[in-house]
């Protein structure tokens, strides 16, 4: 029983947080804001983690910088704008909605739409095709032969 519990516990994937106590701000409200800002900032050396989750050294320095700026009176938008001005949109984990990213936002729904359209057209055409290739009925002689074959099979 204990073993099973242990195994289950191991399987629990908890979100990793890399923020160390020494980095945290004393004011819990400001710290919460720093966490909020960090969650949408990409750790640029690990490519798919936020700086809030990453243990990379550069991510740590970015977290510290986020906190310094918040302490200096920057709003979260200011902090994020600063990072974007240095690293580009790439630093945002949520891609912004603008002309260069339309493909990203509309691409997937568009392809699903095309798929649905193709499926609808395909299935609508099928009954008609079935009518066109209607099978002719067996003649009396053929019916007889079929009957005979079936009987032979049973014997």
């Amino acid at each position: 029983m204990r073993m099973i519990l242990l195994l289950l516990a191991m399987m629990l994937a908890l979100p990793a947080h890399a923020v160390e106590p020494s980095e945290m701000l004393k004011d819990p409200a400001l710290e919460a804001r720093a966490r909020e800002a960090s969650k949408n900032l990409r750790c640029v050396v690990c490519q798919n983690q936020s700086i809030d989750e990453s243990n990379a050294e550069l991510a740590r320095d970015m977290r510290v910088l986020v906190r310094e700026r918040i302490l200096a009176g920057d709003s979260n938008a200011d902090v994020i704008d600063y990072m974007v001005s240095r690293y580009g949109d790439y630093v945002l984990l949520d891609p912004p909605f603008k002309t260069t990213t339309y493909v990203l936002w509309f691409g997937a729904p568009l392809i699903v739409g095309i798929g649905i359209l193709v499926a609808v057209v395909f299935y609508r055409r099928r009954p008609e095709e079935a009518l066109q290739t209607k099978v002719a009925k067996l003649s009396a002689a053929e019916e007889k032969r079929l009957q005979k074959l079936l009987e032979d099979d049973e014997a």
């Binding site: 640029v44 550069l58 320095d61 990072m83 240095r86």
Partner: peptide, 13 residues
């Protein structure tokens, strides 16, 4: 030492 300039330059590595 604390990446201030590196981040300002948008350095990755």
């Amino acid at each position: 030492p604390d990446s201030k300039a590196a981040i300002a330059f948008g350095v990755y590595g």
